[in-house]
Amino acid sequence: MRVLVAEDDEMIGASLVQALEGAGWSADWVRTGPLAQSALADGGYTCVLLDLGLPAQDGTEVLRCARQRGDTTPVIVLTARDRLDDRVLGLDLGADDYLRKPFELRELLARMRAVVRRRDGSAHSLIGSGALQLDLSTREVFVNGRREALTAREFALLHALLERPGAILSREQLENRIYGWGEEVTSNAIDVLIHGMRRKLGAEVIRNVRGLGWRVLAA
């Protein structure tokens, strides 16, 4: 899954990107408020990690503008600010969670999974229904009761499809959810990924709609 890191501190930003990619996330990193606004407007993110003290435009203004234009991407505020008023303001502006620096990576990852679950309308780690369920905490899929492990990109692709069961997602939409900036994406990367997943999970799990894209069937 793809996450936007909006952090101006070079050391923190680089460490976050490295840790997130090691945990299977695809991370894009911006260092200013306007760049965060632009990246959010482009879309495709599962979650945003937002520092309040961004240069050129404060993180609170980035969050305010995103929510005003109807962007519902889950946002976790990461900040050294510890005043109650700052926390209340961030939450009232539409932040989904608030984590004070310094923090442990395990806690951050757990909070990211939690806000994604809430966005998906689930109180637990499983999304999907019927014969196909995806576990957000273990990155495993259950197909007709059979458990299968997924690679990071397989997980990101299936999660994107299960967010909107029955909806057709185009090649571009899937690429935007799986790959970060600067990653080389070949023209048939999605086809190869889906071919491998069909061999693993069954040919009927992911359906192709010729000329439009792919979907999973609604339960």
Rank of each mutant, 00 (worst) to 15 (best):
M1F: 05
R2P: 02
V3C: 10
V5E: 00
I12F: 11
I12D: 05
A14P: 02
L16F: 02
E21Y: 04
E21T: 02
A23N: 07
W25S: 05
V30G: 04
G33Y: 09
A36W: 05
A36N: 10
Q37P: 01
S38H: 08
A39P: 06
D42H: 13
G43P: 07
G44W: 04
D51Q: 05
L52A: 06
L52C: 06
T60A: 11
E61I: 10
V62C: 11
R64L: 14
R69Y: 05
G70A: 13
T72A: 14
T73W: 04
V75P: 03
V75G: 04
L78G: 01
T79G: 09
A80T: 11
R81H: 03
R81T: 00
R87S: 02
R87Y: 06
V88S: 08
L89H: 05
G94D: 07
D96V: 11
K101L: 09
P102Y: 05
E104K: 05
E104S: 14
M112K: 11
A123P: 13
G145I: 05
G145Y: 07
R146V: 12
T151L: 01
R153D: 13
R153V: 04
E154D: 14
A156R: 03
A156V: 05
L158N: 07
R164T: 15
R164P: 02
A167Q: 14
R171W: 08
N176P: 00
I178W: 00
E183L: 10
A203S: 14
R207G: 00
L212V: 12
V216A: 01
A219K: 15
